[in-house]
Amino acid sequence: MSGILLLEQALNGLQLGLMLFLLAAGLTLVFGIMDMVNLAHGSLYMVGAYLIATATQASGSFWWGLAAGVAGTALFGVLLEVSVLRRLYRRDHVTQVLGTFAILLMCNEAVRMIWGSQPLSLNPPAALSGPVELLPGFFYPAFRLLIIVVGLTTAVLLYLLVTRTRLGMQVRAGASNRDMALAMGTNVQRLFTAVFGLGAALCALAGGMLGPLLAVQVGMGESILILAFVVIVIGGIGSIRGALVGALLVGMVDSGGRTLLPMVFESLFGAALAADAAPAVASILIYVLMAAVLFFKPRGLFPAHG
């Protein structure tokens, strides 16, 4: 029985971790290569989820909705980069935080003006809406399995893109030493736009995958953005590999902590104290993890800058 519980938790952790990775990948590249703090990253996730929900309702097919929404969000990201963010790269971090925070607020209110304040419906395709029996007596939601498959596939593709292609080489060069990459003839402006568009598409993909599990509503980006920042700080800013490892760590620790801590506390301190203390401790666990990583490796697990 508890074996199944552990297995299910491991899958939950993997699934949450992979989705965090999709968000953190774009964030870490923007932060690492462009040295830019982008608080509006979560807004791309929200815009993506809204576009996918709308396109799904219009077309009647989740898959077409997903494709249209991801493409639309990538376009939105590119436009945002070209029109506004480009002007913020050379400014200091405080200006960037203020500027992108303003974009975040504007996105929230614009979404509210277009779609209204009530959350939107986005449900998984009917074939994937129920559970599947993975092992005898072990049921797992089919859609969560799909999320794991999509997350793993994207991680592999991203890994190939970064390590095996010319674009990836430029990205890595930009992340480890921007001035040198510039001196070697990389068109940094175009690279930035491409990276930003890619980051936006990954956000939308995460929004489309998580939308059927979570609420598609105004402000959905902020709660997940904090986790994404924790991930890139743990993984090391600018590193895709770091983002993957950090995301999986955060996903596992978060899911595992919420199941295991109450059990451990109950056997140690009794039920009454466990009911009060365990949820509180479980919710700070990932921040404890972050603090521990920063204590031993102040630049994260896989620092990108050389």
Binding site: M1, S2, I4, L5, E8, Q9, N12, Q15, L16, P119, F139, R144, L210, L213, L214, A215, Q217, M220, S223, I224, D254, S255, G256, R258, T259, S283
Partner: peptide, 30 residues
């Protein structure tokens, strides 16, 4: 909290007849 995977696994293990949730707004939707 966004993801209730851990709580749902626990429900599956404890097998109650009913579950009562007070989860306002987006929490309940999730």
């Amino acid at each position: 909290q966004l993801d209730y995977g851990a709580e749902l696994s626990k429900l599956r293990a404890t097998k109650p007849d009913a579950v009562y949730i007070f989860l306002p707004g987006g929490l309940g939707i999730n």
